Simulated assay, not measured.
Amino acid sequence: MGEEKDLMHNLISELRRGTLILSVLSQLSEAKYGYALVQSLEEKGVEIDPNTLYPLLRRLEKQGILTSQWDVGESKPRKYYSRTPMGDDIFRRLKEQWEQLSENMEQILREEEI
């Protein structure tokens, strides 16, 4: 039973991993710092570990999809991330792909029920 539970946990994690980029990009039309992004995603039912998020943010920034800016006006400096114009375009295109993929999967799964 424990092995099956571990297997299921791993499969669910793998399935969710494929949605993280789209989930993160969906929240960055306006600048957010990392912890606020984690909270925003968790409020919407998307769990993301900070140890997963921060490397992802750095990678997306390096790819030109995100930009960042430090805010040192508060007591604790925070790095805010937001989508670049290219990031907006990529988000729109990924969202279209997700909608098509989701529609296809719904159809496939409905066929299974028949």
Score class of each variant (00 low, 15 high):
residue 43 E to T: 08
residue 43 E to S: 13
residue 43 E to D: 14
residue 43 E to M: 11
residue 43 E to G: 14
residue 44 K to G: 06
residue 45 G to C: 05
residue 45 G to H: 00
residue 46 V to T: 05
residue 46 V to D: 01
residue 47 E to N: 10
residue 47 E to C: 03
residue 47 E to A: 06
residue 47 E to G: 10
residue 48 I to S: 12
residue 48 I to G: 10
residue 49 D to H: 13
residue 49 D to V: 05
residue 49 D to P: 04
residue 49 D to R: 09
residue 50 P to S: 12
residue 50 P to Y: 11
residue 51 N to L: 12
residue 51 N to R: 15
residue 51 N to A: 12
residue 51 N to H: 13
residue 53 L to S: 07
residue 53 L to Y: 06
residue 53 L to K: 08
residue 53 L to D: 04
residue 54 Y to M: 13
residue 54 Y to T: 14
residue 54 Y to I: 11
residue 55 P to G: 04
residue 55 P to W: 01
residue 55 P to D: 04
residue 55 P to C: 05
residue 57 L to T: 08
residue 57 L to I: 09
residue 58 R to G: 13
residue 58 R to E: 15
residue 58 R to P: 11
residue 59 R to S: 06
residue 60 L to N: 04
residue 60 L to S: 03
residue 61 E to P: 04
residue 61 E to Y: 00
residue 62 K to P: 02
residue 62 K to G: 13
residue 63 Q to H: 12
residue 64 G to S: 08
residue 64 G to N: 09
residue 65 I to P: 00
residue 65 I to A: 05
residue 65 I to F: 12
residue 65 I to G: 00
residue 66 L to K: 03
residue 66 L to R: 01
residue 66 L to E: 03
residue 66 L to W: 01
residue 67 T to Q: 14
residue 67 T to K: 12
residue 67 T to V: 13
residue 67 T to M: 11
residue 68 S to D: 07
residue 68 S to Y: 02
residue 68 S to C: 08
residue 68 S to I: 07
residue 69 Q to V: 13
residue 69 Q to C: 06
residue 69 Q to D: 05
residue 70 W to I: 07
residue 70 W to P: 00
residue 70 W to Y: 08
residue 70 W to S: 08
residue 71 D to E: 04
residue 71 D to F: 03
residue 71 D to C: 03
residue 71 D to A: 06
residue 72 V to M: 10
residue 72 V to F: 13
residue 72 V to R: 15
residue 73 G to P: 12
residue 74 E to V: 05
residue 75 S to N: 13
residue 76 K to E: 11
residue 76 K to L: 08
residue 76 K to W: 06
residue 77 P to Y: 14
residue 77 P to N: 13
residue 77 P to T: 07
residue 77 P to E: 10
residue 78 R to P: 00
residue 78 R to H: 06
residue 78 R to D: 00
residue 78 R to G: 00
residue 79 K to Q: 11
residue 79 K to M: 09
residue 79 K to R: 14
residue 80 Y to K: 06
residue 80 Y to H: 12
residue 80 Y to D: 06
residue 82 S to Q: 11
residue 83 R to M: 05
residue 83 R to L: 08
residue 83 R to N: 02
residue 83 R to W: 03
residue 83 R to Y: 01
residue 85 P to C: 10
residue 86 M to C: 09
residue 86 M to T: 14
